[in-house]
Computed example of a mutant assay.
Amino acid sequence: MASHSAIRLAAKSTKSALRCIYLQCSVKPGTNKQREGVVSISDTVIELCVAAQPKDGAANLSVRKVFSDIFKCPKSDIKIIQGLKSQEKTVSISGLEFRGDNEKCISRIREQLESAVE
């Protein structure tokens, strides 16, 4: 899987179905609260809008909340690992349970994201 893909999986442990995923995101802060969430998904990026302004980490917290709601996981499992002060971010989500090969897992993750598109 290319490193510039919108959805990537970390190396899989053979003893567990728990995975860590990486999402390439483009975030538009300061949007209307009703527009908050995933806007579109392409092969290379997940676009999302958040109502919070990019001040004092508020937009980053909103990004974590959006993904927490989509994947039904605690915000503490979600980290922004690249792009803390940029609209282009890499988000890591740990502890998600997915069974099957990487392509099936990525497909399920993409379906969850697509179902959240407004």
Score class of each variant (00 low, 15 high):
43 D>I: 08
109 I>K: 00
29 P>K: 06
105 C>N: 04
86 S>A: 11
108 R>S: 03
45 V>P: 00
39 V>K: 11
103 E>L: 08
42 S>E: 04
19 R>N: 07
30 G>L: 01
110 R>F: 09
112 Q>K: 09
41 I>N: 07
7 I>N: 08
84 L>K: 14
26 S>L: 12
64 R>E: 04
55 K>L: 05
73 C>P: 00
104 K>F: 09
49 C>Y: 10
54 P>R: 09
111 E>C: 08
77 D>S: 15
33 K>Q: 14
36 E>K: 08
86 S>M: 06
63 V>K: 01
77 D>A: 14
39 V>I: 13
115 S>W: 09
36 E>Y: 14
75 K>F: 01
44 T>I: 11
106 I>Q: 05
90 T>C: 12
118 E>R: 15
99 R>H: 00
96 L>G: 01
67 F>S: 01
56 D>I: 14
9 L>V: 11
54 P>I: 14
24 Q>R: 14
114 E>F: 05
108 R>W: 05
67 F>D: 00
80 I>L: 03
81 I>P: 10
12 K>P: 12
50 V>R: 06
19 R>I: 02
94 S>E: 00
93 I>D: 03
93 I>L: 05
113 L>Y: 09
19 R>S: 03
2 A>C: 13
57 G>S: 02
108 R>V: 02
110 R>K: 08
26 S>W: 03
91 V>R: 06
4 H>C: 13
87 Q>R: 15
74 P>N: 01
106 I>R: 06
71 F>G: 00
26 S>E: 02
35 R>M: 15
12 K>Y: 10
34 Q>M: 12
84 L>D: 04
82 Q>W: 12
103 E>I: 09
29 P>L: 07
39 V>C: 11
71 F>S: 03
97 E>N: 08
3 S>L: 13
69 D>F: 09
29 P>Q: 01
71 F>Q: 01
71 F>N: 01
89 K>E: 06
74 P>Q: 05
41 I>A: 08
33 K>V: 15
52 A>Q: 15
78 I>K: 08
11 A>Y: 10
80 I>S: 04
118 E>W: 11
32 N>D: 12
99 R>F: 03
103 E>V: 10
101 D>E: 12
3 S>T: 13
30 G>Q: 00
39 V>F: 13
102 N>L: 04
89 K>Y: 06
